[in-house]
Structure formats: C-alpha cells, structure tokens
C-alpha cells in the first residue's frame, strides 16, 4: 500500500499543485456515484419483484448464455484492471505513451464487452424475448441495458481522456479527471458483479 495519505477514494495520483480542489471534486463525484448506486439498486429491486413473472414467455433459462456471461465478466474485469494499470503508469512513470497504451487496452476490452453483450441482445430479440413480452423481460432489459449504457458512456469518457492526455499532457486537472473515471469504471464492475450473480447465475441455478 502506498505510504502517502489518501485524500480521496480511488487511486491517489499525486498532485503537484493544490490537492484541495482534486479532493473536493473526487468527493463530489463519489456522492454522484452513490446516487447512481441508488438507481441501480432500485432497478435491481424491481427485477427482484419480477423474477418468475414471465407470463409464459422466455424465462431465465432461455436468455442466459453462461459462456457469453463469463466472457463479458472477464472482459469487464480485464478492462477495469487495465485502467488501474494505466493510472499506475501515470502515477509512477509520468509517460504519456505507457498510460495511453494501457488506456487503449482498457477501451478495447470494454468495446469487446459491449459487442458480446450486443450479440446477446440480438439473440434475445430473435427468440422473442423483447421487453414488452413480460414483466421479467422488461426488468431484465432495463437492468442489463442500463449497465450497458453506462459502459458506453464510460467508453466515450475514455476517448475524451485519451484526447486530453495527448493535448494537455499529464497535468493535475487531467490526473483528477482520470481518478474520477477510475472510480466510475470500478463502480460499473461492482454493478456487473451483482448482475452476473443475481440475474444470470441465480436465474439458472
């Protein structure tokens, strides 16, 4: 563990100038993430009430492809880890190239996650597992879709950070933004742990 004081959640990248502003902004972002957690938690709760409400339509066994879910889990965890590695390169080596390389791996991994998820969605449409078919499917699409949208937003953010690193270099402002992006990215991985355990694995258990 690093010996320096941690001033905010997530990796502390070591700022040259005022740490106060970075600390405040990261804390504010943490509060936003917690409100996002409430959103996800309530969609989870709605899903919980809809388990079994299949109205004779496709159920958990029909929509769950465990191989695909395992692959998505590995891709998202890999992306999350590559992002940590990008942050560590930023913190200790301060070279753009290494940081950008790990960022590219994280982004590619996340893009593959979205593609595999999209293939699953297409399969669901093919077997008639559309959101309007049953309460279970509405809740499923809402929950998995909401997470997918978040990952997509994260990809856009990563592209923006790549651009900022190239244009501005590793300044304090960029570091603080990367820290917040890291919090967001790990948070999405935590939500995915809930989804693959409670929605897919518990669905077919």
């Amino acid at each position: 563990m690093s010996t320096q004081e941690n001033i905010h959640p997530g990796m502390n990248l070591g700022y040259e100038g005022e740490t106060h502003v970075a600390e405040l902004k990261v804390f504010g972002f943490w509060v936003f993430l917690m409100s996002d957690l409430v959103t996800f938690g309530l969609v989870f709760a709605i899903f919980g009430t809809m388990v079994g409400a299949t109205a004779g339509g496709p159920g958990p066994e029909d929509v769950t492809n465990l191989r695909s879910v395992a692959l998505q889990t590995a891709l998202l965890l890999g992306s999350s880890f590559a992002f940590s590695w990008a942050s560590l390169s930023m913190k200790y080596h301060e070279t753009r190239l290494r940081t950008l390389g790990w960022l590219a791996i994280a982004a590619t991994s996340a893009l593959c996650f979205l593609i595999v998820e999209f293939l699953d969605f297409r399969h669901w449409l093919e077997i008639g597992a559309v959101p309007q078919r049953s309460g279970y499917l509405s809740a499923l699409w809402a929950l998995v879709g909401l997470h997918g949208l978040h990952v997509f937003a994260g990809l856009l953010w990563m592209a923006a950070m790549t651009g900022q690193i190239i244009v501005f270099g590793l300044t304090d402002i960029v570091k603080s933004r990367v820290t917040r992006m890291g919090l967001y990215w790990h948070f999405l991985d935590i939500v995915w742990v809930g989804i693959f355990s409670m929605v897919f694995l518990a669905g077919v258990a």
Binding site: E5, N6, I7, H8, P9, G10, M11, N12, E23, F27, W30, V31, M34, S35, L37, V38, S80, S84, L183, H186, F187, D189
Partner: peptide
Amino acid sequence: FLHIDLSRQKREDLQVLLFT
C-alpha cells in the same frame, strides 16, 4: 480498487456509502 477502508483521515466516503 476503490481504496475505501476504515481509516479515519479521509472524508466521509465510507459514511456516504453506508448511508446509501
């Protein structure tokens, strides 16, 4: 990954999480 622990020097990150 998120460095949320029980140490005291931080802001109220853990408290916000627990309240949520």
